[in-house]
Design a protein around this nucleic acid. Structure first.
Lengths: 116, 116
DNA sequence: GCCATTTATCGCTGGACGACGATAGATGAT
DNA sequence: ATCATCTATCGTCGTCCAGCGATAAATGGC
C-alpha cells in the first residue's frame, strides 16, 4: 500500500478524516450526547432521549453519526442498544485537533508575545 | 440580570458556540487554510488561492467563515486583505474542545483500564 | 483620468444536514 | 400467541453548505 505519492503531503486524506470527525462533534446536541454518555458511562437511546428536547428518531440519528465517526460504541442488549463513549477515539481526536496549535506558533502571537 | 434560569445548565449557549467554532474548522480546505496561514504568519487571499485547488471566490468564502468564527483576523492593506491566524482564539478553541476529555473519564476506558 | 489588480459579493446549482412523524423489526413479558 | 416496548429506518420538508462564474468595489500604477 504505497500511497502518499503525488500531492503536497500525506496530509490530504488526513485533513478530510479530521474534518469528518470534527463535523461529528460540531453540533450542540451531539456535544450534549457525548457529555451525557460520559456522565453515565453507558446509556441506551431512550435515556438520551429523555434528556434532550428532540424526537427519538433524531436522537437515534445523532447517535448513529457519532458511532460512524467512531466516537461512541454500540452494544445490543436485548431490545436496547447500549451506547458508550469510545474514550480511545475521543482522545485520538483531541490529540489530532491539538496539532492545530502548530498554526499558532509561526504567528508569534496576535498581540501577547509572552516574552515581552 | 439573573440569567441561567430555566434550562439544565449555563451550558446551552456554550455548546452552540463551541459547535459553531468546530463547524468552522470541520472542513478540509479550511483546515488547510489554517495551516497555510500558520506557516506564513500572514498571507493575502491570492496567496491562499495559489495553494488550494479551488476558485478565488470559494477561498474568499472560506476565509470569511474562519474570520466570522474569530479564528483568523483580517487587515486591509491597500488592495489586499492580509489574513493571519488569531492565535488566542485558536488556543481558546483547543482548550474548550479539550474539555471533552471529561467525557472519557467516567467511562473507565473502552478496553484499556490500565490507564496510560 | 484610465487601466490593471485584488478581493468581496451576488446568483445559481447540486447535494447534504436537521428535524419530524410514521412505521417496521426485534425482543421481552404475559 | 399476543401484546408492549425499544430502536432503527424511511420519507418528507425546509434550510444551509460548497462550489462555480460573473461582476462590482476598492486601490495602485501609469
Amino acid at each position: 500500500m504505497g500511497q502518499s505519492a503525488q500531492p503536497n503531503f500525506p496530509a490530504d486524506a488526513d485533513r478530510q478524516n479530521l474534518a469528518d470527525r470534527l463535523a461529528a462533534i460540531a453540533h450542540p446536541y451531539r456535544l450534549q450526547i457525548l457529555e451525557e454518555l460520559g456522565r453515565a458511562d453507558c446509556a441506551c437511546c431512550g435515556e438520551v432521549v429523555s434528556r434532550l428536547p428532540i424526537a427519538q428518531s433524531t436522537v437515534s440519528q445523532h447517535l448513529k453519526i457519532l458511532a460512524q465517526a467512531g466516537l461512541v460504541e454500540v452494544n445490543s442488549a436485548g431490545q436496547k442498544s447500549l451506547y458508550r463513549v469510545n474514550a480511545v477515539a475521543v482522545r485520538a481526536l483531541l490529540d489530532d485537533v491539538a496539532a492545530l496549535r502548530a498554526c499558532c506558533n509561526a504567528a508569534v502571537d496576535t498581540k501577547n508575545s509572552k516574552d515581552d
